[in-house]
Write a protein that binds this DNA or RNA. Structure first.
Lengths: 219, 219
DNA sequence: CGGTCTATTGACTGGCGTCAAGCACCGTGG
DNA sequence: CCACGGTGCTTGACGCCAGTCAATAGACCG
């Protein structure tokens, strides 16, 4: 994405650090340069749900420009390098550069498509299918930013965090991971995910990459 | 929303009719003038999940302008009157009217916030809390378009369709509805929903209206 | 009056949460 | 060198929430 020319500051975060607080009113939008982050919502019971996972290159809270107050927080899943762009500059873009504005808008719209896929996974897929679906999604998203190849990528998160993505308990994530490994479709040791049969995994998860909008078409 | 001046055609749909097909490449975006619609995704098992519910005044598939191919279908839940605006005209807006463009963008961004709330409901709330949350959301959204007042609104959908919103079976929706009625917080007869204690219902559902972005602030 | 759709109810099953214990790994400090 | 506490992974036992199957009843309609 072409962001040269926009002023920004960058900052580093440790794994687990809060990048943007839930309920805050940020004056900047942030962009992940390196690492993994997640959007999180909390319930009074202490339970937590991730509503999105972000990888290098993602403009994480562009929507904060329009929403004013954050309905969710953003946390670092791994060590992260993050760039911040002031809202004032983004607003100027929306007033002077229709094409770039459309790219920004598209970015939030693709986020929405991913969220819809998550909704369908949560509502109608089994836990193990959901897990497989997440792996397929991450692989394709990481591949286009050169963080994955030959079926392999790094994903340094705990099983409890995967649970927060899938809406499962850490115990059940562990069970589903073992079951999925037993199919021979993937291996997952430490933070390294190795997909041995992407076709098979896609079929198993009923994964259709259409929604990720990876094809190149004029906008 | 100010849409005067944009060309459009309007069309009527019966309950259950498909307004936009999953996988299609529409050349227009649609706007619900009257009635209820839902975005739906289908699995091979025949299961269906709604990823959003739309009410009068909602610009349902504005994102279709940017996504080109639909990752979901749009169906009428009740009889609907729908307006269609050609993408060509919307594209012109994005090139000539920054303020209106920002309003369009905001509309898709609020959709995204609602989807995040759905994700958290699906992942971490109990079925009955989720149901209560949906009722709170619908009430506030309908109130601002004058389709709800004094805790009462019309919602002409079947229990199976509610199941497709909540990711539940029709049988379990029935059980949860009875349980929720038994609390005295709501009544629901036929297609009429009566909230007798919105405060209580909000608390029960842990509903926070922040995400609906109802407050009026300059954009 | 039968036919279709929806709501309701009961019985049974199973997926997933919860609780708890036991490991494995790692960095710290004695 | 080993003791240690912390964190994350793994496993088992148990219970409950929600799915499935099936039957009945009611509502609406031609």
């Amino acid at each position: 994405m072409i962001l040269e020319g926009l002023p920004r500051r960058t900052k580093e975060y440790r794994a687990g650090a809060e990048i943007i607080a839930e309920g805050s009113r940020p004056q900047e939008s942030c962009l992940i340069l390196e690492g993994f982050a997640a959007r999180a919502q909390h319930l009074s019971s202490g339970k937590r749900q991730f509503t999105a996972v972000h990888v290098a290159g993602d403009f994480v809270d562009l929507h904060g420009l329009l929403l004013k107050q954050m309905d969710h927080g953003v946390i670092a899943l791994s060590p992260c390098r993050v760039a911040f762009v002031p809202h004032a500059n983004l607003k100027t873009v929306t007033e002077t550069n229709p094409h770039l504005t459309r790219m920004f808008w598209l970015s939030t719209v693709v986020d929405g498509a991913i969220q819809r896929a998550w909704i369908t996974c949560l509502g109608r897929r089994s836990a193990i299918q959901h897990l497989a679906h997440l792996i397929c999604e991450l692989y394709l998203r990481l591949e286009i930013v050169d963080r994955a190849e030959n079926g392999k990528f790094e994903f340094p998160v705990t099983q409890a965090e995967i649970g927060d993505m899938l809406g499962l308990s850490n115990v059940h994530v562990n069970r589903m991971l073992q079951e999925l490994r037993a199919t021979g479709l993937i291996r997952w040791r430490g933070s390294t995910v190795q997909i041995d049969d992407f076709e098979g995994l896609s079929t198993f998860a009923e994964f259709d990459p259409l929604y990720l909008n990876l094809s190149r078409e004029p906008r």
